[in-house]
Amino acid sequence: MSTFVLLAVTGLGLAALYFLVASGLSLIFGLMGVLNFAHGAFLTIGAYGTWWAAENLPGAGDGGWSFVYAVVFGVAVGTLVAALVELLLIRPLYERHIEQVLVTVGLSLALVALVRAIWGSDPRPFPRPAWTQRTTSLLGAQVPNDRFLLVATAVLVLVAVLVFLRTTRVGLVIRAGVENRSMVTALGIDVRKAFTLVFAVGGAFAALAGALGGVYLGSISPGQGTSLLIFAFIVVVIGGMSSITGTAAAAVLVGLVQQFANYYAASGVGDLSVVLLLAVVLLARPGGLTARVA
């Protein structure tokens, strides 16, 4: 029982990371038709930005509010880079989807290479508040606190995104744009303004995932984002490509399946079973779990 609880909560923690990365991916794809392969690099930037801030910025560090400060810095850098990528590289290639995808692939390689050139390829120990390393007992299991941090953050982000999409004018434009972008422009709305916003916010969530992933794993390395990106893409497809709630459900499914299969079968089987899950979902429901954005 306690193993089961530990596996479940750890699977949900993993799901939280997947959701943070995949939610941005799915909004960007839904609204702009761009598969953003640079999204993993935003995660890496968030992780290294947080790490750098904790080491170098006065007031930032690995405990309490000084850690929050370091994370805010990392997320801000990730957001800024994502917004610049949209404005300078994606926008000039508007409606040329193949070129856009190629640019994001190139960018992902370049950004990771840049991080590697500056800080090396060896993993760096990541600053993390001491309380995240302690455990809390839950239904007889000793669960490390960082799992709760991951899940709580993801739930907060999910609720915030849903409230934004459902109650604001820009949220309405985004939901409509995911459904039919050209009709939105035919109503006199400049939908491209929403593109930059969605890219920046997606970048912010990925950067946040980078920082939280650092807490969870205890170290960061340049290739981390790119390997997580593959699972995030699977989550996006299972979730229906452009739906936030679908993405959340798919993230939970993938996180749990991966965690349980890795434990009860053999290490590595988890990754394989995720691909299997993708195939099963696509055969049963070719459109993914849901097609509505929010």
Binding site: R169, L172, V173, R175, A176, E179, N180, M183, V184, L187, G188, I189, A291, R292, V293
Partner: peptide, 18 residues
Amino acid sequence: EVFGGLTVAENLALAERR
């Protein structure tokens, strides 16, 4: 080309042009 995933009221609100 009405927005099928939006309510009627949301479709009209979206059409309010500045």
